[in-house]
Each structure stands twice: as C-alpha cells, then as structure tokens.
Simulated scan of single mutants.
Amino acid sequence: LVASPEIYNYLEEEISNLVGTEACVIFPTVTLISIGVLPAFVGKTGVLILDKSGHETMYEGAKIARDNGATLESFEKDDFSSLEEILKKHESNNRKVIMVDGVYSMTGDYANLPKLVKLAKKYKALIYIDDAHGFGVIGENPTNEFPLGKKGNGIVKYFGMEYDNIIYVGGCSKAYSSLAAFVACSKEMKTFIEAFATPYDLSGPCPIASLSTLLQGLNINKESGDNRRKKLFDLTSRAINGLRGLGYDVLNKTGFPIISVLIGDTEKLIKTANMLFDEGILVTVAPYPMVRKGEDVHRITITSANTEDEVDKLINAFSKVRVNKIDPLHQS
C-alpha cells in the first residue's frame, strides 16, 4: 500500500486555516505546481493570460499548456486596458486563467488584486496567484504599527479579499526555508488537482524533514511571527533609506524585504558585486539578459535574523563603492 504520512494531512489543514481556504494541496515546489496545475486548468482549449513580469515558472507551465493546444496571451504588469482587451477577445471561452505574482520577485511590488479581481469576475476568469515571496511575510490587517500585516497569510488576506475566483499558490522555501509549496483552494478544486495535475502523482514527495521544519516554522509564526515581521520591515526601511541617502536608485515602493539597487550596466554590476563581497556583503546579481538591458541590479534580501549593525555594514559597503567611483549609471 502507498500512503502519505500523517504530517501531510496535518500541514494541509494548518495552512488552509492560516490562509483562509477550504482546502490545500502540498507539492514539493512551486515549479511543479505551475507545470502541473496550469495545463490541467485550461486543457486543450482554454486560455492562459500571463503577466510578463510574473515568475518564469508560470511561463514554463504555460508553454506546456500551449503545446497541448491551449492559447497563451500576455500583458504588461498593471496594464489593465490590455488585459481587458484580451479578456474581451476570449470572452466566450469558459476556461480563462490570469497568471500573476502576488509579490514581484525583483522589486517587492504587490499585484493590484482589487483591479485584477474586478476584471476577472467581469469576464468569468480565474486568477492564479504565485505568492512564493509573499507567503509568510505579508498578511491580513496591515496598519502603521504592522505595515506588512499580521499572520503572514499572504497577498489575498493583505488586501482583505476572499478566494471566490482565486487559486492561491504559496511557497515555503522563502519565509519558512522548507522544501514545500501548496495550492490553497476549495475542496472540489483539491480533488481536481489531485486527479489531473501530473506532478502530484508522478513527482517525488516532500522529504519528511522539510515538512517537519515547515511545521516548526508555523509554530514559530503563531508565537512571534508578527513581531518578527515588524522587525523585518524596520530593517528593510533602514536599508532602503540608507542606500537612497547615498544616491542609489532603489526599486522598492512597498517596504517588502526585497531590495533591488539599480546599477544599469553588466560590467559595473559584476565589479561592484565583487567589491561588496570583499566587504563581507553577498548580493544576488541580476544582469542582462536576466533583466532588460540597462536594468541590471543588485538584489538584496533582508531577513528578521539580521541586525541593525549588519544593515549599517551593508550601507557602509555600498558607500565604499561610491567612494571608489564605481557609480551606478542611474541615480535618484
């Protein structure tokens, strides 16, 4: 006999309760969800509508669906006029799915869910939200005291919305540092996914060790998550203000702990990354063609385990880059 360990059932119930859905299906990764669930949703005749700024894994899943016969359309982030034109074009198709990030992985921007949901309901489309970065960080009832919200239950709850026409995908490798991901949905949709999303049957399961770390992470979230997120926001604001004070163009409008510093030139990007590393700072480089030409950035991720002294060290390292006259091409 083949069966899932009991921890699966327990975690799926815990996550469902946290995000506020009827049910939840755990997969090993968000990538497996995208390449399995998206083709299952639209079959051979449906329409997938991709936000061009969305994560590459959604595009990979959409290409599989397209190769099976589905239609793939795309629109620029926040271009709701173009999105509505596409929805009108396919108004008679009953299998339409709009694909967006909840929190965009390079800028920390939030998807404009209120506008997306309004359009999706008008044209009877589903919204597939990849909230790999948002889950565990942003959540319900944001206030001045808790700008990221509470509970870390994701972008939908951050906006105080329901899941009527939303398929919510969360990743656990970011905030929870665990090899797991999930689809939060209705019980009916869970049954559909288990039956028709190929990776659910044919890929390997999550290691029990990873599920155990996720379980402990959820316990920590209950005990001290909101205070950790408050600290996280404060540290992020300190970093953003410090970098902007040095003249750097920082691509962050939300205070989410993804900070992209615009350099604008691949050669300078690599050179400054090495200089920062020599100062004890490891940044993620995003050169062309990972991003558009002239939009090369250093991507910095702040965690609640960081300290004010470490953030000050980061700012000081970037100041030394400026002193050595290896300046970004674009300055604020």
Rank of each mutant, 00 (worst) to 15 (best):
I193R: 02
G20S: 00
P5C: 09
L87H: 09
M58G: 10
S34E: 09
D278V: 04
D79P: 14
S53T: 06
S224N: 13
M275P: 01
V183A: 00
H133I: 11
T191C: 07
A273Y: 04
Y8V: 05
N93P: 05
N144D: 13
K121D: 03
P207W: 04
C24Y: 06
K268Y: 14
I129D: 00
D327C: 09
L50Y: 11
I263S: 03
E188I: 03
M161E: 01
T236C: 08
P114G: 06
L214I: 10
S173A: 11
L251T: 02
S82Q: 13
K230I: 04
K88C: 06
F277M: 13
I15Q: 06
K151H: 14
E162H: 10
L119D: 07
E85P: 05
F182V: 00
N165Q: 12
V137N: 00
R228A: 12
G294L: 06
D234I: 10
L87K: 05
E13R: 15
M99W: 02
F80C: 03
N241R: 10
L262H: 15
G294E: 04
N112T: 00
L32F: 01
A62M: 04
G264R: 11
L211N: 03
P142W: 03
E84Q: 10
A317H: 06
V97T: 01
I155A: 04
E194Q: 15
M290P: 04
D226T: 08
E295A: 13
N144A: 15
P28T: 12
V169L: 07
E295L: 08
F192N: 01
N17V: 12
V30L: 04
S186G: 05
Y168W: 02
G20F: 00
L218M: 11
F233M: 03
S34K: 13
S332P: 15
D309K: 15
N141T: 06
E145L: 13
H90F: 12
C185Y: 03
F256G: 04
K231Y: 08
